[in-house]
């Protein structure tokens, strides 16, 4: 089975799982004891947060591989992982605000480390994409983006562990032991749904980057000839 076919299957599976998990989360899972129905937001918020961190972790690995081997494939995958990570990062921030308003009474606070580090993570990786868009030379673009990705990744473990190091508004991570089984199920299904969907989106974004690089490579010799004649 070809790589593209496996990726397409992953995408379809992701959509199906996400729809099933959301249905269970919205209509089958019981309301939470204190937060009531508002806790249903967590069935999409937590999977998006997990997978955003995972995408950035993949991007970090691809960036290291790109710097070490200079193979375009790693650069293309890194671009895909960063961009999909940013999309999920935007989602986790928006969902988080929609959860914070009814439960904490505020949309946002700069006094919570998890919120601030999550927003910083978005800014850092959005900056990586902006850097990529501004550098014209393909070799420099790949190197600088990879270095920027490695630097931005410093914030990722901070986002994950900050709730254990500094206690403030955002609660610590829940575990299956601290949750009802009926609540773990939609969370897990959606987590795998977003994971498979992210896989599909990263592959599609990497393919876009591959086509762009192929286009630029063919365009470049012509530019050199024109420059030589001039």
């Amino acid at each position: 089975m070809g790589r593209q076919r496996i990726t397409t299957i992953a995408g379809v599976l992701g959509v199906v799982l996400l729809l099933a998990g959301s249905y269970i989360g919205l209509f089958v899972a019981p309301p939470e004891r204190h937060m009531g129905d508002v806790a249903r937001i967590l069935y999409v918020h937590v999977p998006c947060a997990w997978n955003s961190l995972l995408c950035y972790t993949f991007a970090f690995g691809f960036a290291i591989a790109s710097l070490a081997t200079r193979r375009p494939r790693w650069d293309q995958l890194m671009t895909g992982a960063v961009e999909v990570g940013v999309v999920l990062n935007v989602l986790l921030l928006l969902q988080g605000m929609l959860f914070a308003r009814p439960t904490w009474g505020i949309w946002w606070t700069w006094g919570d480390v998890r919120l601030v580090f999550s927003f910083l993570m978005f800014l850092l990786f959005a900056g990586v994409l902006a850097l990529r868009a501004f550098v014209d030379d393909p070799a420099r673009r790949g190197t600088w983006t990879a270095i920027a990705t490695v630097a931005a990744f410093v914030d990722v473990p901070l986002v994950y562990y900050c709730v254990r190091w500094w206690r403030s508004l955002h609660q610590m991570q829940s575990t299956p032991e601290t949750m009802d089984a009926a609540m773990v199920l939609p969370m897990r299904i959606n987590a795998f749904g977003v994971l498979f969907l992210a896989w599909w989106l990263i592959a599609a974004r990497a393919e876009l980057e591959r086509r762009r690089q192929a286009f630029d490579e063919v365009a470049e010799p012509a530019a050199v000839v024109v420059a030589g004649r001039a």
């Binding site: 204190h34 937001i41 998006c48 929609l98 439960t103 989106l201």
Partner: peptide
């Protein structure tokens, strides 16, 4: 201390998720 209701926030969260994911997939395509 139990929050009653809040379905508008739940619908908004799922709606935003659907719009952003579908929008991004569409832009990629």
């Amino acid at each position: 201390g139990v929050i009653i209701g809040g379905w508008s926030f739940v619908v908004a969260a799922y709606g935003v998720t659907a719009v952003v994911l579908v929008g991004y997939a569409w832009s990629l395509r």
